[in-house]
Design a protein around this nucleic acid. Structure first.
Lengths: 214, 214
DNA sequence: TACGAACCAGACAAACCTGTCTTGCCTTCG
DNA sequence: CGAAGGCAAGACAGGTTTGTCTGGTTCGTA
């Protein structure tokens, strides 16, 4: 194997750090959380398949047996990572959302400012669920279950706010906001420019001016 | 290795087919094209890293030496696949775009109908460039070069049409359309519902009504 | 102190992955 | 005809991956 070009496809595990919104950033005594934290960082930066178990335990500082004591397989670890990432992200996002003005308009527009802060984090790595849906086929039911669960949370929130605004067609409007949010995430991640959140916000504002009854 | 749960992370290579827009769908005598075609299908469905060289040559019906005669490494094959996918997709997209009315408004809105047809293809697997940008770190320069090249084509087209429309701020408007297109792709792919193209189209229409000078 | 749970370290097996090389078939062209 | 080149088939090497197992250490509690 003299051809070493494939080494360019593997990542160096040292430089990745946890983003600010993550709860499990510091080193807790609990081995399970250390594994989840290390795996989240490595999976989300280097890819789920490309990152090996050995890299995870090296970063977590645990034994391999400990990992397989907590998770029956790498596939189960991936699902657990996605669940933990979703929990932490939603906690961060909805807590920040709760500090905004109590009108649905203010929340819907302010959400894009929160997205901006997410994108501007120096350790921003994109949305783990979009990554997982990109990397795995839809046949992987467990992975796609976590994707659907997260997306359901977002759409439930959007629907509630849009219904409160008495918008014409709540479902239609919700799907429009899903497009704006997903698009902002992908554009910001693939370009590295967090300002796409503000472009999405502007589209949302124009939409709300034209669509809102009151 | 009695624990076989990780088998759930690998794909069955038989069921994937080429989408309708693909040019290299049929089996040409040329070995290089057969490899590109097979690799495109397998990579885009099963993931770039998770798909092995053996699966590619088995589907292409070639020898391993033939593959390494045409491509120096798997990393080079991935780049070649992305370039071929981009060429074929842009050819399909812009040829369909050319059949639309010759006003920039008609082209910009009609583009979302073309996206709808793309999403509705039974073998739609999302955007290879979004997949690649999700799976690989931005440190992989060759991969990210193809992503930037493709994105540049799209933004150049958007900018030309928006400038022709004499929209207020062409760059700002272009970024808004990038959000709409990326969002429609991701929402449609992760949900399997092509109608997100029409939600994006509606947002574009509202935006153009409010923003266009004439 | 004794005990047990949790954990670290690392050897190990079996499979798989990338990349190289050999052999031989078949086509094409001088 | 004969040489050459493209290609299929597949063995092979070296490394990596997931997952298991053993042995020893630490820590909390009775």
């Amino acid at each position: 194997m003299r051809n070493t070009a494939s080494a360019a496809l593997r990542q160096k595990p040292d430089c990745e750090q946890r983003p600010a919104w993550s709860v499990t950033g510091n080193n807790p005594a609990n081995a399970r959380e250390r594994i989840i934290t290390a795996a989240s960082t490595l999976f989300c930066h280097g890819g789920f398949t490309a990152t090996g178990i050995d890299a995870v335990i090296a970063r977590a500082g645990t034994a391999k047996a400990t990992l397989y004591n907590h998770f029956p397989s790498k596939a189960a670890l991936i699902v657990a990572v996605l669940e933990a990432e979703g929990d932490a992200w939603r906690k961060w996002f909805f807590e920040r959302l709760a500090t905004l003005d109590q009108t649905p308009q203010a929340r819907l527009l302010g959400a894009f400012d929160i997205l901006y802060d997410w994108f501007a984090d120096p350790y921003f790595y994109g949305c783990p669920f979009i990554k997982a849906a990109s990397e795995f086929d839809s046949k992987h039911a467990a992975v796609y279950g976590t994707v659907a669960f997260h997306k359901r949370h977002i759409t439930d929130w959007l629907k509630a706010d849009l219904a409160e605004m008495k918008v014409d067609d709540v479902d239609h409007a919700t799907r429009g906001f899903v497009v704006l949010i997903d698009g902002a995430i992908v554009a910001a991640q693939s370009s590295g420019d967090p300002a796409f959140a503000l472009n999405a916000k502007h589209l949302a504002k124009v939409y709300m001016l034209q669509r809102c009854k009151e």
